[in-house]
Design a protein around this nucleic acid. Structure first.
Lengths: 339, 339
DNA sequence: ATCATAATCCAAAACGTTTTGGATGTCAAT
DNA sequence: ATTGACATCCAAAACGTTTTGGATTATGAT
């Protein structure tokens, strides 16, 4: 059904070579026959087979991206925004995206090997790096161009785009300190994630700046779900000397903490100050509206994609590292000065 | 760098054919040499080139999906959930997703032609159908398997998964009627979308069931943004005989209506009842929590993908049409009985 | 007439697979 | 010895492109 160069050759009487070169605009085919060939191609609705083209040229103009596994309710806006940023940038360079989904409960690396090994992508974008990240080591050893969203601890340099989590938590914690809080808790994400370490550093730095003690009991680790925010919030707020402010590592956990406060009869923004992280649409419309750290997710995706395409098209691989600066969005949940 | 069958042939001394058949598990290669070949393949880290395989087999095991264009803030959770559903189902059948982004401000059809014509996908999933949808006509005429999310008006039958919008709005409107409301407004989406027509039908049906008059002034059309919800909400709530209940066609517009009510000093859930649509995470955490219609987005994506894969693998194309039943999630924004 | 030059075209190889249709050798049955 | 059956292997074609390295013809200069 599909029209190929062979069909055009048969129809026009020229050879496949000439058809191909005419369509590609080479100057060793006369203007007259070029026009003729273009006409016929147009008339028959010829569309080049990209697979054949890619196989021949060894370039796919495709960027790979692996979606982490999800349950039935996909409640984190992060990926859609990031993806949207990547997609926008990709399509403006005529790149497409190959998306594979990591099945819940399976290890991630095999999917990477499958996609990379299959030769269907020119490069990969990595999401949610870990402190020790086998995917990065694999991609590096495989020699495929890649850009990570987030940093990692490796023996080599690699390209990444990251949002400065240390700055993010520094801003949030400073904000609470400036409102007069002295016992500030941090509901962190999983400890093996790089972002956890960076944010933790920002948290400690803010405390140190103001000579506040760092109480280990005030740092707890959740799994980014609202449920874990609720549980950790309940335990934090029932401590002997409970924290007066709580920073969570994403908006969902912050909303969990809000629920916890409510269950304990505490007024958010008055009895306890709460801040989220990521500034998802949730934050702006929560009750009360949630102070949060805007992480420029769309922009990160865009930049990551831009860097990757540069990397792919460069003759010489160049490592580029970009650190975006988040900004604090202050809303009612952080309350007013305690003085 | 990459290991090919040719390399394995050279390494083992067998022919390319035998290598290929050994790896594929044909029984015309002895158990002993098969083991040997597998060992070598493993040792050299052989990964079959999917491009070559796809070119040869004329199957790509890839599903195409085109992301509508977005601005910098991607605030609709719909796509991420849908995509997550599609991705989950796809990967459980070892299919991958090819994603292209439609650049903002450009026409949609060329992207479809590019992806379909390129031969890189076995089928497509269509999002947000329109009443008259050129994409559907194109895909039908191109003979490529596809499943639409949403219905359309065509001369032929095609496969779709849809959520019964008529039922959705019927439930929401009935709910308000049962609470004693008599003037119920509908903030619809763009009139050229099929979903608008279906929901409108449900709205009218509910009114008719209870012999309520259908006031044309109470039906207004927005563009699914919060801003348009705000504007339409302001104009509706400043009418002479203002509506006492408003159903919006997505949560974002509903939140805009909530803002409008607040600006006019009306208490949501008391002076005016409001309902959203889609039941995004926003709805549950809004202030006040928003009554909404849960549309099983993840499930739709899953079903659409499942149907598409069936369609691709069937010898005989079978049209399948699936209508999922949404359910109303009642929260504080719809208030209590007015009696 | 001969030769270089330019213009226009094309056959064949290559990309990495799978599949088709044998080829070869072994062994038991005749 | 021949035959047939079976096990094991492989050369070549095919998928649809692009690129390489000419081949052919016409043109103009000598």
């Amino acid at each position: 059904m599909r029209i190929t160069l062979k069909d055009l050759a048969k129809e026009t009487g020229y050879s496949i070579t000439t058809i191909s070169r005419a369509l590609a605009g080479y100057d060793d085919v006369s203007e007259q026959t070029r026009k003729f060939i273009l006409d016929v191609a147009e008339r028959l609705g010829y569309q080049p087979n990209q697979l054949a083209r890619q196989l021949q040229s060894q370039r796919t103009n495709t960027i790979g991206l692996i979606l982490p596994a999800y349950g039935p309710r996909f409640s984190d806006a992060f990926f859609s925004e990031f993806l949207s940023g990547v997609g926008t940038e990709a399509s403006s360079h005529s790149y497409d995206l190959l998306l594979a989904t990591q099945i819940a409960g399976t290890e991630g690396l095999p999917v990477y090997k499958r996609i990379v090994g299959s030769g269907r992508v020119d490069g990969m974008i990595l999401l949610r790096t870990q402190q020790h990240d086998p995917r990065i080591e694999y991609l590096h050893s495989a020699g495929l161009p890649f850009v990570a969203h987030g940093r990692s601890e490796t023996d080599f340099e690699f390209s990444y785009v990251d949002v400065d989590g240390e700055l993010g938590l520094l801003l949030a914690t400073r904000h609470f300190i400036s409102l007069g809080h002295r016992r500030i808790a941090f509901v962190a994400a999983m400890p093996d994630l790089m972002l956890t370490r960076h944010r933790l550093a920002g948290y400690y730095r803010a405390l140190a700046e103001h000579d506040l003690p760092a109480d280990p009991a005030l740092v707890v680790y959740g799994d980014l779900t609202q449920q874990s925010g609720l549980e950790l919030g309940l335990s934090l707020l029932q401590m002997d000397r409970r924290p007066t402010a709580i920073v969570a590592s994403n908006d969902l956990m912050a909303l969990g903490v809000v629920m916890a406060a409510r269950q304990l009869g505490l007024r958010v923004g008055v009895d306890v100050a709460i801040s989220g992280y990521d500034d998802t649409p949730l934050a702006a419309h929560a009750d009360p509206p949630l102070t949060s750290v805007n992480c420029l997710v769309f922009e990160s995706g865009r930049q990551a994609c831009r860097q990757l395409i540069e990397l792919i098209q460069a003759d010489q691989p160049v490592v580029k590292q970009l650190l975006l600066q988040p900004n604090l969005v202050i809303r009612a949940s952080s309350g007013t000065s305690r003085d």
